[in-house]
Amino acid sequence: MSYMKEDEVYIGSKIFFRNESWLILAGQPPNGCDHLPVVEVKKPKRQGIGSLGSYKPDLVVAKNNVFLLVECKPNYHSGDAEKLLSILKDSARIELFYNEIQQRRLFNRRGIKVDLSEFEAGLWGALAHSGPAGQEEELIDLRVRSIHGDAEVLLPRNADDKLKAVFRGH
């Protein structure tokens, strides 16, 4: 089986979310530059300059105050799953991430009103890839079929009503 390349998964994911009326807040494409702002999820207590230990999500998207950190890879990547889960379970990192988005005025620019607690409650991780789909316990599985935004969504087993609502129809 041949997989899409990482940049193709990125483009396909972005178009999928756009077509589904998600707001694209930020992104860091693989090996390149997009028009999107690049945001970091910093590591608490990091001293000095630079980005050591910080994480730059491939995409950050939002809809109805559900927020997704999206990682794009040709195939399912367990390392990405671990990385996303470790962030999503770390309130200090989520607060730093929220502050970074505020500092960049991204909520304002996209007309989003959300406080930290609502942001944390609405934050999920998504694995975008072109490999076989598989349901996760806590992460969204986005199987990207083409660069034009064709994709299949598998919600996590622990999806709440709000998450199910924004993906209704998938």
Binding site: K5, Y10, N31, G32
Partner: peptide, 10 residues
């Protein structure tokens, strides 16, 4: 180019 993101933008 090295990736389609910049190439498609261009």
């Amino acid at each position: 180019g090295d990736n389609k993101i910049e190439a498609f933008w261009f």
